[in-house]
Nucleic acid binder design. Structure first.
Lengths: 172, 172
DNA sequence: CCCCTTTTGTTTAACGTTCAAGAAGAACGC
DNA sequence: GCGTTCTTCTTGAACGTTAAACAAAAGGGG
């Protein structure tokens, strides 16, 4: 019936998760669902925007002249250009971001954080940091925090469409 | 100016994340964003539904008579009843889930996994497991897997609106 | 210079999610 | 039994996201 060692046929019987793996995976799904939901709710209530949008403002605040090309911002935030386009349109309506043409590339657009956007960030950063602390860092030992960082780094690296050596594809 | 030790005023200066904490947090956000996106895409392409919907089918498949009360399913999946209502409506249109009245409580509804729904699950589970393995388990050592499970368990527990002792609120 | 391909960013429509409000039955207290 | 309150689930509208298609400019050979 099963010609291969119980759990490893080429593409016949898939390698199901063990009970322990399942427990881990479910904990992961539960935690990420609950946390994203929690942060979305906190920011929506206090700052009037979802977590992702807040993240965009943060990236802009850290960028050289508070501006980033659309494509770069999308890459940084790990979202599609389409999604970013919609998001920036909304943030622009709020007066928190402004678009600017790129002089060197007529297709290009900069998303620029306005003073008003900076102010929103300043006002709501404490609440957000607090939420993150309360939900994550305050509950983990230093070792667990370190582990979490390493693990998430590995997972992210594995899914990154590009990253180090992205322009040297033959090296991969 | 600052009467308290540089980084701990009651509600004055918030406790910002240290550089190391920031690295951890960003790795977390990046990894979860990329992974959820990846799984959504895989399931949408192969099975025609987002990850959350797939999760609902799984919960139903594991339930006693392949059925769960709406409220219970929502709790299990960590989503709101409203969201579930819309989701089940969609899954019902696909013929994967059917609603059934609860005999003992006329307000109640069961969501029931149909044979067709079961079949969809059977057909697409291997691809999904594979995606999860490839993105997560294949990249982590056993120790890291164990850590991940513990950490996510702690975070989830902290955000659970209810759980153990939920009906004994005075004990909390 | 011209053609072809790629990159950049936007748009539209379909879809999913949230929020607030509401209908209907259960549960509780008296 | 009766009124009040709570629970269960749904609805509609506003909002966010996705996917596919597109326009415009840049890049890369010949």
């Amino acid at each position: 019936m099963n010609t291969a060692p119980a759990s490893s046929a080429a593409a016949g019987e898939p390698r199901w998760l063990t009970d322990e793996e399942q427990r881990v995976w479910r904990a992961y799904v539960d935690a990420t669902t609950l946390l994203e939901d929690h942060l979305d709710r906190q920011l929506q209530r206090d700052a009037g925007m979802p977590h992702v949008y807040y993240g965009l403002l943060v990236k802009l605040a850290e960028a050289p002249r508070r501006r980033l090309r659309m494509t770069e911002l999308a890459k940084d935030a790990k979202i599609t250009r389409s999604r970013l386009s919609h998001a920036v349109a909304r943030l622009e309506k709020n007066g928190w971001v402004r678009r600017e043409d790129c002089p060197s590339d007529k297709r290009g657009q900069f998303a620029v954080l306005t003073d008003e956007g900076m102010e929103v960030l300043r006002r709501h950063a404490p609440g957000h940091v607090n939420a993150v602390r309360q939900a994550v860092f305050d509950r983990l030992t230093p070792e667990q925090q370190k582990s979490l960082g390493e693990i998430m780094g590995i997972v992210a690296e594995g899914l990154q469409p590009s990253e180090a050596g992205a322009d040297l594809p033959w090296l991969r």
